[in-house]
């Protein structure tokens, strides 16, 4: 197994965190993982993205140029990275704020209304977790509980009260594409 992922969105959508949680969960399962942020002259409101590899074997290139899955949280990310999906790969689109469909027909596109679902859950910040739930449902590359363990590690015990809404967000995201 080699999952080569690109997570992209605008600064503040939590795309770097999505990638980190996935990498951490992969590590907990004993897989080889790498997480690499784009750290260029990114500006507020501009795009942020990260490359995440998860594999049963040691990882070569940490830079994902041809992705098995691309997650686009906003329109500029979709425009920039749709072409980076490998033929037959997956493209996850945040349909809450992206007003177009995938243009390619040789890939599998999934539309997830991340922001709407997050608002329904009463916490707009979990839109990224909704998308991560959809991603996990389709790729099955790590266990959802591992992602929540990773989140707890990241948040610390003091914010453990946020775990239930994040679990719900993952589940709703999975349901949106299930």
């Amino acid at each position: 197994m080699l999952e080569q992922n690109l997570f992209a969105g605008f600064g503040g959508q939590g795309v770097l965190l999505m990638g980190q949680l996935l990498a951490y969960a992969g590590m907990l399962e004993g897989k080889y993982v790498s997480w690499l942020p784009a750290y260029g002259p990114e500006m507020r409101g501009g795009t942020a993205n990260c490359s995440v590899n998860i594999s049963d074997e040691p990882i070569g290139s940490p830079v994902v140029s041809k992705a098995t899955a691309v997650v686009a949280m906003n329109r500029p990310s979709l425009d920039k990275f749709e072409s980076a999906v490998q033929p037959g790969g997956m493209l996850f689109i945040n349909s809450s704020i992206i007003d177009r469909k995938a243009q390619r027909e040789d890939i599998r596109a999934y539309y997830v209304p991340c922001n709407e679902i997050a608002e329904e859950l009463g916490n707009g910040k979990v839109a990224n977790m909704v998308m991560l739930g959809a991603y996990l449902e389709k790729t099955r590359c790590v266990d959802m509980e591992g992602v929540l363990d990773a989140l707890l590690h990241k948040l610390g015990e003091k914010k453990a009260n946020l775990i239930p809404v994040n679990r719900e967000a993952l589940k709703r995201g999975a349901g949106a594409v299930g």
Partner: peptide
């Protein structure tokens, strides 16, 4: 290089 510096790995 910058990639080794910024990358996370186990």
């Amino acid at each position: 290089d910058g990639i080794i510096g910024q990358m996370m790995e186990p």
